[in-house]
Computed example of a mutant assay.
Amino acid sequence: MTRFDRYMLSQFMVLFGFFALVLVSIFWINKAVRMFDRLIGDGQPAWIFLEFTALTLPGVIGVVLPIATFAGAVYVTNRMTTESELTVMQATGYSPWRLIRPVLIYGCLIALMMSVLSHYLIPKSLSQLRLRQAEVSQNITAKLLTEGEFLHPAPGITFYIRDITPEGELRDVFLSDRRNDKTPVTYTSTQAYLVQEGGGTKLVMVDGLAQNLRTEGNRLFTTHFDDFSYDISSLISRDPTNLNRVDFALTGDLLFRPAEMAEITGSTVPEVLYEAHGRFAQALMCVVAALIGFATLLVGTYSRFGVWWQIVGAFTLLVLIKMVEGGVSGAVLASASAWPLIYLPTGIGALLTIILLYLAAYPGIWRRLWPFGPRKGPSGPVEGAA
Rank of each mutant, 00 (worst) to 15 (best):
240 P>G: 09
361 A>T: 14
371 P>G: 05
349 G>S: 11
272 V>R: 01
202 K>W: 09
196 Q>G: 10
323 M>G: 14
226 D>N: 12
382 V>F: 07
330 G>D: 14
176 S>I: 06
287 V>M: 10
17 G>R: 06
276 A>R: 00
295 A>E: 00
294 F>E: 00
385 A>V: 12
9 L>E: 01
79 R>W: 08
237 S>H: 10
90 Q>W: 02
101 R>T: 13
90 Q>N: 11
365 I>Y: 10
350 A>Q: 00
75 Y>C: 09
42 D>G: 14
298 L>Y: 02
144 L>M: 04
89 M>P: 09
316 T>I: 05
373 G>V: 04
189 S>A: 15
166 P>K: 07
8 M>V: 15
128 Q>I: 11
66 P>D: 03
211 Q>S: 14
38 R>I: 08
11 Q>T: 07
167 E>T: 15
122 I>K: 00
347 G>Y: 08
139 N>R: 05
286 C>W: 00
188 T>D: 13
188 T>I: 10
245 R>H: 03
30 N>A: 13
290 A>H: 00
269 V>H: 01
268 T>R: 02
92 T>W: 05
342 I>H: 00
102 P>Y: 00
382 V>Y: 10
367 R>D: 14
254 L>A: 00
66 P>V: 02
143 K>L: 03
364 G>W: 02
218 N>S: 08
306 G>S: 09
51 E>W: 05
86 L>F: 12
351 L>F: 14
226 D>E: 15
305 F>K: 14
